[in-house]
Amino acid sequence: MSEMRLQRWLRSPIVWPLAGLALLLVVNLVHNPAFLHIGVLDGHLEGQPIAIFNNGARTLLLALGMTLVIATGGVDLSVGSVMAVAGATAGALLTSEHPQFHALPLVLGVSLGVGALAGLLNGVLVAYAGIQPIVATLILMVSGRGIAQLISHGNVLLIRSPGFGYIGKGFLLGLPFAAVLAVALYTVAQLGLRRTAAGLFIEAVGDNPVASRFAGLATARVACLAYLASGLCAALAGVMDAANIGAADPYRSGENMELDAIFAVVVGGTALTGGRFTLLGSFVGVLLLQTLTPTLVFLGVDPPVAPVPKALLIVIVCVLQSDLTRRWLKNLLPSKATVSVAGRVAS
C-alpha cells in the first residue's frame, strides 16, 4: 500500500521541480553552508531564503495567472507590459497634483482595474473573436509599454508614499509583506479553484474544449475569465514592483517577466497544451528559477548572463517532455512489465 502511494507520488508532476529545487539547494549548501540560514535584522527575518521569496513575489503572482491561462490551452504574453501599465497608473495617481488621488484604496482599485481591463481585452479576443492566444496577447505586449509611457509621460515616476511602499518592501510579523501576499493569494486561489468547480472547469476546457462544450460548459466564458485573472495578477505584480523600487518605471518594469512566468509554469509541470494544472507546481517552479539566480552568482555567472542557463534549462525540459523523446526512451528502456518481474526475482 505504502509502495503504491510512493509510486503515485513519484508520478505526480510536482516531483521534478521539487527535485530540481533540492539539487540547487544542495549545490548552494556545498558552496555556502549558511545558505539556508535565516537571521533576524531590525526586527524582521532576513537571509537568502527570505530574499528568494521576496524577490520572487512578483513572478509568483504572474505565474499564478499564467497557470490558469495555460491550463485553458492558451498563453498570455502581455503580462510584462500590463505590469508596466499598472505600475505607471499607480505612479501617476500617487504623484498627481491632486491629493485626493493619493488615497491608497483608489490607487489600488484603479491600477488593478486597468489590469482587469487588459485581461478582459485579451480574453475577448481569444475566447469570443477566436484569435490565437499568442497573436491576441501580442497586441498588448507591443502596445502596453507605449501606454505605460504615455501614462507616466515618459518619466520614471518616483513614489514617496510609505503606505504604498509597504506593498513592495514592508514587513508583516517579521516576514516580507510581498511574499506573504503572494503566498496568501496562492492559498486563496487554490481554495477558490479546488473548493468550487472552477478549477475543474478550467481543466476540462483545456483538456478537450469540444467535449466540454458538449457537456454544457460555457467554454468561452471560462477561457475569458482565465485571461481576466491573469491581467489582475499582472497588475498586482506591477503595483508591487513599483512599490518595491519606489518608482514606476514604464520601460523596465516587468521586462522579460512573461518569460519567467511561462517558464515557471512549464517547469512546474503544467503542460503548454492545457488541461491539468498545478498551482503548487508553478509555485515551486518560481522558487526554482529564483534560486537559480543566486546559485549562478555563486558559480561565478553574472546576473545579466543568467538568462543563458535559464534558456538551456527550459529547452531541456521541453525536449524531455516531447513525444519524440518519450518514444525514444520507451524504445531504449525495457518495458515496465519486465522491470517489475526482474525486481521481484531479485528480491
Binding site: 497586441i139 502596445s143 501606454i147 515618459g154 514604464p250
Partner: peptide
C-alpha cells in the same frame, strides 16, 4: 510623446 508610436502601432 514618442510612446505614441508604440500605441498607434498597437
Amino acid at each position: 510623446d514618442p510612446a505614441w508610436t508604440r500605441l498607434i502601432i498597437g
